[in-house]
Each structure stands twice: as structure tokens, then as C-alpha cells.
Write a protein that binds this DNA or RNA. Structure first.
Lengths: 156, 156
DNA sequence: CAGCAACAATTGCAATCGCAACAAATTGCG
DNA sequence: CGCAATTTGTTGCGATTGCAATTGTTGCTG
């Protein structure tokens, strides 16, 4: 009955959170996706672009341009994959570690302030609900995407 | 302590929901914003573009182009505001009502399926938490936006 | 009434991102 | 081995959106 109210609230809060994050990250010359990538990356262990795209829930082409930008900022370094000449390994530079540390401090301060309106028990409930929702929506997407990209068949 | 987990889950679910909605709305040649606009509009009572932008949480320029598109699809009509030559009034056409009805049926079916993993009590809790979060984040944005856009002053 | 600030809508521009097409490299199967 | 299918990353293109500047209108104030 309140499904729709949940949905609208969730949608609106998404927009607001995106906007608020942009305001925070702007001073570090990062957008949300770039920041999330920095969080994942590591100075030692190199990530492949394809793995980054799967983790960040975006297209490979988006990761290409994301990596182009972070590289131009000197925050990451591309290096060839020793075992596969198609692949590249992306690692954090010292500047990347520093920039991530600054941005992370600002973002996590903001996050903490926002979620301080919930108590510990509520957070647990929220996490549990969000996980269940994530599972359903993931399944819905998987179902829809295996349905259309192939099989223009309608076979007998 | 779990603030960050909440946040990441929320962010990920936002991406998934956006993606899932796009898959549903694509068949009606609408994106999420266009659909939300159709929900607001009415065959009789005309909306001003500025009011739409505030309701949809986007820029006025975005609404201009949104209305351009919906008009080109024949779903809405622009008419001059009788009392103010600066304004325009936007109303739903019959085709707009029909398109909205189809899209709404599909979307609400999907929403209902997604939120069926929560029971009534959980939905109430979720709504309450989302409302509190919305309030904090709104306040945060308002604070940040009144801080920077003006006052490059640092006066004596 | 003249001037000016505020407001409605639009346009230009840049940033962002998904999708499709592509080149290079790798894998697998006959 | 040899060739087809798959995989990795890139590029072209279009769609979407925010921000700043602009035009035309309104309303307030001296």
C-alpha cells in the first residue's frame, strides 16, 4: 500500500544525497564515481578496468574515461598486465592516496552527520531492508537484461 | 559505526533502481524525470515550468528541455499564462494521459514487486527513516548553498 | 514615471554516461 | 596448428543535466 511512498522518498533522497556529495567532493575535483574508484584502488594491488567497471556498476567505457581523468590528475598510474597484454593494471599513486585521504575525511564526516538521525538499531534494520531490496532489484535487472539483448526469436 | 555501510548500500541501490526503472520506462520512450513530470501534470490545471523544476528537484533549464521533449511527443501542451506574460502553463494532453496510464501501470507493478520483500511494519519504519534522512540532507544542502554562491566577500 | 531588482524561460557550453562498433590479444575447439 | 569466439580496453555518438549568461516581463521605489 505504501510501496509508492517508499519509492518516491527513496528516489528523492537519492537525488539529494547525490547533490550533497557533489558539493562536498567538488573541492577535491572529484565526482562520486571518481571518488568511489579511489576508494577501491590500492597503491600495490593493481585493478583491471573491467573489474573496476563491475564493482562500480558502470560501463567499461566509463571506466576508461574515469581512469583517463584520474591519471591526468596524477592520482593513479596505468601499468601493463604482465600476464595479459590486453589488460592494464591501475594503481594509486602517492598523490592519489593523499587526495583520497582528504576527500574521505570530508565525505565520512558528512555521512556520519546525516546518519546520526538514526540510532544503532534503526541502522541495523535499514541495512537489512536495503540488502533485501538490492537482491530483488538485482534479480529484476538480470532477468530483464537476459530477456531482451538476445532472443528476438519468440521461438515455437 | 555502520554509517558507511548504510551509505554504500543506499548508493548502490539507487544505481540499481535507476537502471531498473530505465529498463521499464524505455518501452514508453520516457526517462525517469519525464515520467515523474507526467505524474505531476494534469489535463486541466496548468503548471509553470519553475514550479515543476522545484518539485522535480532539477534546474529550470532541464525543465525547459524536458517540456520540449514531452511537447514534441504530443503528451503535453504549452499555453501562455493569462496573468503573466513571462510564464507558460503546461497541461497534459489526451495522449499524455494515455501514455502516463500505461507507464504507470508498468512502473507500479515493478515497484510493488520490489517492495514486497518488506512487510507493512517495515515499510512504515523505512518511510520514517527516509523522511528523517531527507530532512538532514536537505538542511545540509541549503546550508552549503547559501554559504558559497554569494559572499566572495570575506569583508573587513 | 524612471530605474532597477527580481523573476520566467531559454540558450550555450561543458561534464557525464550508456550503448554500439571496433582493434588487439587471448582462448578454445576441431 | 588454424580459425572462430571471447575478452579487454578504446572511441564515436547521442542523451541527459547543471551552471552561467541572456532576453523579456513584472513590480517596487524614489
Amino acid at each position: 500500500m505504501e510501496d509508492y511512498q517508499d519509492y518516491r522518498l527513496f528516489q528523492e533522497l537519492s537525488l539529494l544525497l547525490d547533490h550533497a556529495d557533489r558539493l562536498v567532493l567538488r573541492q577535491f575535483r572529484l565526482n562520486t564515481l571518481q571518488y568511489n574508484a579511489l576508494l577501491l584502488l590500492d597503491p600495490d594491488e593493481g585493478w583491471r578496468l573491467t573489474d573496476l567497471s563491475e564493482r562500480l556498476l558502470c560501463e567499461r567505457s566509463t571506466v576508461t574515461r574515469l581512469v583517463d581523468y584520474l591519471e591526468s590528475e596524477g592520482l593513479i598510474a596505468r601499468s601493463p598486465d604482465p600476464g595479459d597484454r590486453r589488460s592494464q593494471r591501475v594503481t594509486l599513486t602517492a598523490a592519489g592516496v593523499a587526495r583520497r585521504r582528504e576527500a574521505q575525511a570530508a565525505i565520512e564526516e558528512a555521512i556520519h552527520r546525516r546518519f546520526s538521525v538514526l540510532n544503532g538499531e534503526e541502522e541495523q534494520q535499514l541495512i537489512a531492508m536495503l540488502k533485501r531490496l538490492r537482491a530483488v532489484v538485482s534479480a529484476e535487472i538480470a532477468e530483464k537484461e537476459t530477456a531482451s539483448p538476445e532472443a528476438s526469436s519468440t521461438p515455437s
